[in-house]
Design a binder for these strands. Structure first.
Lengths: 164, 164
DNA sequence: TATTTTTTAGAACAAATGTCTGTTTTTTAT
DNA sequence: ATAAAAAACAGACATTTGTTCTAAAAAATA
């Protein structure tokens, strides 16, 4: 029998140095024009155009996005919240995940090794807003065993760049 | 006496619902055109144009970027590495930070509360590459007290969106 | 209510953009 | 060395883009 596959089945690209060079530039400036990229890499527009299209279709480039500064929109407090579940069955794990995905405060959710099952990153205005989240949203979930909140004192570095 | 201020002194914007609506759209599609945004928000191009420019200058919008899928470029292993320093003086902290910022594998570095001083997120291909990083880069720093590596089993959610 | 100030509408322009076609160069395989 | 295949070049086109201007509307102030 075949089960539903959540892993997307897209052409696996073998990227060369030119592809990587393009990605490197677009990671820093997603609005960079094909001509500018071409001239910076000593190429013509055609190969740059085709390579970008190829990487977009293969979802190497997942999206183009404006990166907003959380501090500037009153979301300057970051909290890492570690969570262990009571029930670890697949069923209960999925339920937890679905509920977590519904919380807009949660900007990241990782299933991790070690003492805890999950780490979620919570982005809020201040401690009041975090308490509100912790008590009325996270606290309402019925599968939690225990949690631990670690507060971010300062953000030294944060980037989406993975190509160098 | 005045000391060097690292905190950027930019006009603090009071954003209204229209600004937030624009940010919301640009976070999802940074290449969205001013006309498209305008029509979606039932506005003309002028206010949209001026509001975006204003938010760019105030660095509410930090940048436009292409978001690359780490898995697709052979950086599919994420490790959270927790670090405590031996010396906590300002001088030694700065040295540590400077060295960490030089490691391209580190996509995030947070100064945190609790047992450890820092959490760094390390993005690598596989365990071999992590060991290489752990031994030859992190291990070469001379101010480390102790560390703990937590491995990401699966990424449930990850986003840069902070406006909803 | 009257008046000033701020914001938006609507249209228009020049410049820049993605996209395509045919040709040339480079690479690969025989 | 030669043929075949793949990649890059160069240039051109239609469209769309950011941007600006003037007038109108809306909001804020007195």
């Amino acid at each position: 029998m075949s089960t539903k596959q959540s892993t997307n089945q897209l052409p696996i690209l073998q990227l060369d140095e030119k592809d990587m060079a393009i990605l490197k530039l677009l990671q820093i400036d997603g609005k960079m024009t094909i001509r500018d990229i071409a001239s910076k890499l000593n190429l013509s527009t055609t190969p740059v155009y085709e390579r970008i299209k190829k990487m977009e279709q293969a979802e190497v480039i997942k999206q183009y996005a404006a990166i907003v500064d959380p501090k500037k929109i009153n979301k300057g407090l970051t909290v890492l919240c570690y969570i262990t579940l009571k029930e670890h069955s697949k069923k209960y794990g999925k339920k937890f995940i679905q509920e977590i995905l519904g919380f807009t405060e949660v900007t990241e959710c990782l299933n991790i090794s070690g003492e805890f099952d999950f780490m979620i990153k919570v982005q809020v205005k201040d401690m009041d807003e975090y308490r509100e989240f912790y008590v009325n949203k996270l606290g309402e979930l019925d599968n939690l065993s225990h949690t631990q909140s670690i507060f971010v004192i300062s953000v030294i570095k944060t980037t989406h760049q993975v190509v160098f």
